[in-house]
Amino acid sequence: MGTRPVTDQSQFNERQIKRIFYRRLGTAVWVSFLAAAVQTMIFFAQFDPAYLNEIASITISIDRWQGYALGFVFFWLFSFITGLFCGVIMALPRTKLAQSIRQES
């Protein structure tokens, strides 16, 4: 059950490649959202954002709500970048080596 990942893009046209890209983008956004939710929960159960604000080297004043929200956005952003890189790197680059690997398999 489930689908095989698309690793070979050579047989797709421009429009389909665009769709593959958007699909990966959407997947990264959604999966990193779930990951960020868990990270936020675990992190802020241990650390109080109000206290972190007091000891932070940047001098902005935030309350707890803003701290939670900022933390969530931070986790989301970095998880998203990780996910996006995975998606980009999973596709083989268009080099001669990659082509030979494709032909062999």
């Binding site: 698309v6 047989q11 046209n13 389909q16 769709r19 593959i20 699909r23």
Partner: peptide, 15 residues
């Protein structure tokens, strides 16, 4: 679907 898409596609991206 445009005329370009006549080649067989192994994997359906989206139904």
């Amino acid at each position: 679907m445009s005329t370009q898409d006549t080649r067989p596609v192994e994997l359906k991206l989206y139904k």
